[in-house]
Write a protein that binds this DNA or RNA. Structure first.
Lengths: 242, 242
DNA sequence: GCTAGAGGTTGACGCAGCGTCAAGGTCAAG
DNA sequence: CTTGACCTTGACGCTGCGTCAACCTCTAGC
């Protein structure tokens, strides 16, 4: 009775995946030639990682094996991508634990968000928000991180420039900047509204206020006036788009 | 109470991972600042894929986070390797289903084993043996398969040569060949004895007999005489080594 | 015929990490 | 007082079997 354990055969019987050909008076289950061929196919498909109910539908002819395998392949690839990111994140954590023992998430944003004001973010949006953003950041490659930082710096520079020129925070140009800011924020998992594709209304407004209130941030955006400009632009944006 | 679901917090409470700071008379659970910091760390570690009990031992200081992460990283890498093989195997299967609809496992061996005599293998060693060997073969890269085929062909040629020279099947040279044959067989997952690092005694002996009995195989090994030589050499090998 | 031992059987729990009811208590608002 | 929103505690479900525990069957030796 080798090949698999009897427990497995029993399990398949319960699932209706493979029933014994006949059951003796003593309760012993017997499998004939055809059943073994079926078992053979089951085991091959199982090795490929297919779920047992899927295998059943394939063997019963209710599902095309080629399409089932194609779907499964996609699923496997997604899983591998997830694993890759997780591995990268763990590696980054190991390095940072070995090194400065400090998380360098500060580089991630404008120096304000999550990193410095983690507690505020957590109190308002839940502790999970920080964790998700952190994992996302760690899972990026060096190149991706560099690209992100470049984009962040460009956005900051454009804000400073716009504020310096004294344009209308409710005008078209400021609106475009606010939209970039919103997309930039929404790209980060953990940001409230990330799943919906745009930041939560309250998050945007609250962020604007915090920008003004905290001089460490304000400095990045060109001082108190710059921060106020950003806040006003975000307000106008929210008023129009939400 | 965002960040995670209340169910999750309850779960962590049951695991002793994070208990509410205080529980009101109404049964409501409350978490203070320190608890939230702890939750924060829990969520970060969970994102990295660490198991909850491991997280607990880390947070309780019973386990070094750096070593735990290093172990975990190894585990993740193993998992990814497994996934890679499985993906390769599924891809190969998709191709073969699209193509000839026939499995080309025949190339795998000397043309005798599993492929042609699947039924015999299954009857004697269980249906799982074939499935494992099949998955192994599909999981190999083209280069690995080519290498395996080259090694197989070399082994066959050496057998034919030895048999042709009429050497002693119990002698040192035949013994060395038998050992190569045994290692070659044991390398295939699904081969009886694979896990122990050498083929099962009965498997080797039975294979020798089948080689002689089946002319399709015998041809590969240089006719009936060649097959008999292989069988005798395997017998002698078993007599000495098992 | 008796007995030991090998090998078979059927429940049923366990695992990892919660999601998801069901049944019911709490609280602020109208 | 009622409504509705939000909280609570069980307890089952999911995946694919491994692993007891308690018990039956069959073969072999005496």
């Amino acid at each position: 009775m080798a090949g698999t354990t009897s427990r497995t055969l029993r399990h398949y019987g319960e699932l209706g995946l493979l029933s014994p050909t006949r059951v003796g008076a003593n309760g012993y289950r017997h499998y004939d030639e055809r059943a073994l061929v079926r078992l053979q196919r089951i085991l091959v498909l199982r090795q490929l990682g297919l779920a047992l109910p899927v295998i059943r539908s394939i063997l019963d002819g209710q599902r095309d094996d080629a399409s089932a395998l194609a779907d499964h392949l996609e699923e496997l690839r997604r899983e591998r991508a997830r694993l890759d990111r997780q591995i990268a994140a763990v590696e980054a954590t190991v390095r940072s634990v070995r090194g400065g023992e400090r998380l360098m998430v500060d580089e991630m944003f404008d120096g304000f968000d999550h990193a410095r004001h983690r507690r505020e973010v957590e109190e308002r949006w839940g502790a999970g928000a920080y964790a998700r953003g952190d994992a996302w950041w760690r899972g990026m490659s060096e190149a991706e991180r560099a690209d992100w930082k470049r984009r962040s710096a460009a956005l900051l520079a454009d804000w400073r420039d716009a504020a310096g020129r004294g344009i209308d925070p409710g005008g078209a140009e400021a609106l475009a900047l606010a939209r970039r800011q919103a997309e930039w924020l929404a790209a980060v998992p953990g940001t409230p509204g990330h799943d919906e594709g745009r930041p939560a209304r309250e998050y945007l407004l609250g962020l604007g206020e915090m920008y003004v209130a905290d001089e460490r941030f304000a400095r990045n955006y060109g001082g108190a006036d710059g921060a106020a400009f950003v806040r006003d632009a975000l307000r106008a944006y929210v008023a129009r788009e939400y």
